[in-house]
Design a protein around this nucleic acid. Structure first.
Lengths: 142, 142, 142, 142
DNA sequence: TTTT
DNA sequence: TTTT
């Protein structure tokens, strides 16, 4: 069992890429999740959590979300390792989303990047295709 | 909101340390959480998730768990950054546990490292002291 | 382990009561949680989940939420039994909240019942007093 | 969003039925989930939560679990209403499972009802067929 | 008895 | 109607 539930705001616009081998869509963004306490500086603190979405979910996210938007994400934690520039092994931890629910509505006037005509009350996108079938050609492009 | 629920096995024995300033106990271990699919190699794959426990929970975990034990962990994702040896900024992601439930019982004969006399059915430890009050002297010792 | 995570809208205004014995505040409301599918009628369907909040959380909820407001609730499932009018035993299932996050902002003009001056981005109330100490005088008043 | 995560023991053997219309398998059982506190009587208390499994998951559960077995369940809360004998409207709340993980191993000698040859470390069954398509003929048979 |  |  590996379950994660988060509510936060996009710390940056999503990036959409495609796997080299099979052209599967993958979107990535960072979610800023407020902590329940206030830090030393008297400032609200947040965790900045890297999120990965696959396939249709990736496309809906990339086409409809932008920096500052509030979402709920359910998914799981995924760890991976990779070779750094200097040859050393590095580890990374991401949340792979299987559901993203849009929770706010950008300022009508603000041009905040929302590009869809979908009512935010209806948007609860899920990735029913499950996990990404790693097959050598389809390394995650980051 | 930032909620995590995991079930897996300790990939290594827990390490117990104390913060420099105030001597608060902190235990760390890695949890191996099986994925629901089988990888290329035909082998079961797992995510290796770093877990942090504080205070009393840290002590109970360090004194009663060891490599191979199965537990359920609830908690939250915490991200932090630190200076690497070479001066570059690195990021890490951990799960801070607020509850750990012991799910199995080591072989009576096996010497698996269990050092307590607590029935596994009763062990559900929680950290009700909440988040760690960062106050300059109490940097996380890793 | 008993963990619940819900996002939905209040199907009715919260009710605030106090336990007979010790006067502890308890608020109840029903949360309408949309299902991810559309029913036979072609209509969106929802689950109507009874929520219970205790103490300070009860008061914040009763004073600041009203029918239609969107919230995220984390908590646990609690079952109980009671004597029906006709003497038969009945069972009920509720979610006891330990955190409620306010997710929307009522129409400034609409008089939706919001009575606080708190920015919705800051409102994430938790019940750190833990479970309700059942002691005979303090039966749940419903 | 509607997510539930439970760990507990079956309070009774699962019951397997089939929908009248389309013969879809549905298993039901009650999960006893220990509370973290001890009640007035000085006894450990539990919540008794009704669980519903559909299709393949229903069959695996019915064929492999029995009273007393420990499992982790992830799923969602579902509410429904029905006509009681006396004509009055009643409400019920169930957890619809989408994943069940077997967490213990019955006494080899005890004849506890385990009928499979599956290692408990491998058993993590999920219902990927999603929600049950209510279509008039397929009312839940209880 | 149900929300948008 | 409840489990260890």
């Amino acid at each position: 069992m590996n379950k994660v539930f988060l509510i936060g705001r996009l710390a940056r616009d999503p990036e959409l890429r495609f796997t080299a081998g099979t052209g599967i869509a993958v979107a990535t963004f960072t979610l800023a999740v407020d902590r329940n306490y206030v830090g030393q500086s008297g400032q609200r603190e947040a965790d900045f959590i890297p999120i990965i979405c696959w396939r249709k979910l990736a496309e809906v996210v990339a086409n409809n979300l932008s920096k500052g938007r509030m979402v709920a994400v359910s998914g799981s934690i995924q760890t991976s390792s990779y070779q750094a520039q200097d040859g050393s092994k590095r580890y990374r931890t991401d949340v792979v989303a299987d559901e993203v629910k849009f929770l706010d509505w950008p300022n009508k006037d603000g041009g905040s990047g929302f590009r869809g005509g979908i009512s935010h009350d209806d948007v609860n996108v899920s990735d029913d295709t499950g996990f990404f079938p790693v097959d050598g050609d389809d390394d995650i492009p980051f």
